[in-house]
Design a protein around this nucleic acid. Structure first.
Lengths: 206, 206
DNA sequence: ATTGCCAACTTGACACTGCCAACTTGACAA
DNA sequence: TTGTCAAGTTGGCAGTGTCAAGTTGGCAAT
């Protein structure tokens, strides 16, 4: 009674997914800096050169992980958006979801923006980026429709995503800053909500 | 007529600074991914283990570079702020200066946020971060005094810095997005100015 | 002037990395 | 049974960071 092959009857069963899972384990455990093809192969119980047969090189595997991370972001934001009827609250909720996912899986989400580690021209990655952008854009568009029909939605969407990503990027540094400067650091969710209120005021038609 | 020793009469003259300059050359040339202690040592004309005597390890050298990068940002923003009398224009100018420096020296500025590569507890780095934050904070404070004295200045400063950094981070990805989605991408300076206008509206007292 | 000392630097090694070429294994089809 | 080809292994190369031990050169005190 051997393990039933998942896709076809080849050696491992489903090595690509096993490698991706192993890679996520490594990254969750030791951060993106601790990632290495050989370590991943070791955890998956295969030889050090096996990953190359499925992902080409390290960038190939990481690109695949980046696609998954964008999916994670997209799903979380879409769910958060769905749960909030009010457009303003919805934008805040989407922002909180983005930051929450990025904080819960820091290494995984960092891959998305490590343009030195992934193949930025990969069609799947580009498509995932577009799809994720579209979720944010939808929320911004709803907001604009209600508050400011003349708003440049693409620019506003970029503003929102930039701010969300900036918050993630700066969060740790700010935590350090708060500790050393003595100023209190409000919880990030509260900050996101404050930010959203400020941004929404800015997006409002004058 | 040997080169006059700068600090004291030891072997090289001023190896630490020579190493930092070499490191900047490498990073400017090949990006942060191309950085390696041995390559830096090679360019400085010393043995591969020489850097360790001055910086301990790779993180030590990169931390030192991060401090310099923060100084670069700080100087550029302070100069930009000084040249603009109007508080709103000043914030926009500071934002443009931040993004300009980050774009002119991408590798150098990326080091600042690569918490996996630097020693985030290093006192010089913390101090440099605080000093740079203070520049942004000053601009925001001026704006608040004029437009909304009740504003939480620390939070607003974090919002501004997060947005600036997010713009830098997202810029390349957005460029890709614009190319693949067919939407036009306005020049970044224009985007910054747009963002500032939106933010300022948001910071205004209601 | 000789001595001793110590920071600055070199040398050599170890374990690790990504990647490549050549090889073996296993499944499936003719 | 045989052929074929993807899947996975083995071994090697060049490169990396870091450590231990050795070397060099200047300076201060004897």
């Amino acid at each position: 009674m051997t393990q039933a092959p998942l896709t076809r009857g080849y050696h491992h069963g489903d090595l690509p997914n096993a490698l991706k899972r192993a890679a996520l384990d490594v990254i969750d455990e030791k951060g993106l800096g601790g990632f290495s093809l050989r370590e991943v192969a070791r955890r998956a119980g295969v030889s050090h050169a096996a990953p190359a047969h499925h992902f080409g090189d390290a960038a190939g595997l990481l690109t695949s992980l980046a696609v998954d991370a964008l999916g994670r972001m997209r799903t979380a934001m879409a769910e958060a958006a769905e749960a909030e009827p009010d457009p303003v609250d919805r934008l805040a909720a989407v922002g909180r979801a983005y930051v929450r996912v990025s904080r819960e899986h820091p290494g995984h989400c960092q891959v998305v923006f490590r343009t030195d580690l992934v193949d930025t021209e990969n069609p799947d990655l580009v498509a995932a980026g577009l799809a994720t952008f579209e979720v944010v854009r939808g929320v911004v568009a709803d907001l604009a429709e209600e508050m400011n029909p003349a708003l440049d939605i693409d620019t506003a969407t970029r503003l929102c995503w930039s701010t969300m990503q900036g918050v993630v990027e700066i969060e740790q540094k700010m935590r350090l800053h708060a500790r050393h400067s003595g100023t209190g650091l409000s919880d990030t969710d509260g900050t996101i909500t404050d930010f959203t209120r400020m941004l929404v005021e800015g997006l409002r038609a004058r």
